[in-house]
Simulated scan of single mutants.
Amino acid sequence: MQEGTLLKAILNRYVDERFILGFDGLSRAGKTTIVEEIRKGLIDNEKTVCVFHIDDYIVERKKRYDTGFEEWHEYYNLQWDVEYLSQQLFAKLRDAEEVTLPFYNSKSDEIIQRTVVIPHDCIIIVEGVFLQRKEWREFFDFVVYLDCPRQTRFERESANIRQHVEKFKTRYWKAEDYYLNTLCPLSKADMVLSS
């Protein structure tokens, strides 16, 4: 089981101080599901775990749609405030006792500031797409990439969403291709899992 191999790899590298694990992969690859299994496994091994989901920090719709840029550019470059997260999340993960971050409420399209307490000796897991972008990659001690074929990921979308295949072609898949071809995340990851 891949999760068991990953759990062993984390436990072998963790030494009673903060350990920052990046869990990268494209949309609908199954990252959140595996991260939850790993979190449970680490707790079973009496480790303290703190999980951050990058999609919690998406910016408001007006900042990422109809901006005048191509749709793939909006998704890759404007979906998150990359520089803000670099400074207010990633740069603080090693030492801060807490971080205050802009949580996105998708129902109201509003940002709500929330403070997250980070235990001193813990394993921090950051999960999301495009984690190995140049602004963030250096902050991780270990990066896992969850590889999953595009067709499999697309089939995991609801039937209603799958009807809008053109949006996938112009927004999501172009951004994914840019990431895969420009940053080569599979070759830069410390471990690659398949889903």
Rank of each mutant, 00 (worst) to 15 (best):
Q79E: 11
V99D: 13
S106L: 05
L89F: 04
Y104A: 01
R64I: 03
N77T: 03
F90E: 10
G68W: 09
E70L: 05
E70Q: 09
T67S: 12
G68D: 14
E70A: 12
S86A: 11
E83M: 04
E97L: 06
I112H: 15
I112N: 13
K107Q: 14
Y104D: 04
L78E: 11
E83G: 00
E97Q: 13
E97M: 04
Q88W: 08
N105Q: 12
I111E: 08
E74Q: 15
Q79K: 10
D66F: 10
F90Y: 15
D95K: 12
Y76E: 01
A96F: 06
F69K: 09
V82Q: 10
W80K: 00
L78C: 05
V82Y: 05
T100I: 10
I112W: 01
D109I: 00
E71T: 00
I112R: 07
F90R: 01
L93T: 08
F103E: 07
K107I: 08
G68E: 12
D109P: 01
L78R: 12
N77S: 10
W80M: 04
W80D: 01
A91K: 08
E74G: 00
Q79L: 11
R64L: 03
D95E: 12
E74V: 01
F103D: 02
P102G: 08
S108R: 13
D66N: 15
W72Y: 11
Q87A: 06
L85H: 06
N77G: 00
K92M: 09
I111F: 03
G68H: 09
Y84M: 13
R64K: 12
S86E: 15
S108A: 12
K63R: 10
K92C: 07
W80T: 01
S108I: 01
V82T: 12
D109M: 07
Q79R: 10
E97T: 06
W80C: 02
I111Q: 08
Q87H: 14
A91Q: 11
S86N: 10
A96R: 04
Y84Q: 11
Q79G: 00
K92L: 14
L101K: 02
V82G: 00
D81V: 05
E97C: 05
L93K: 04
S86Y: 02
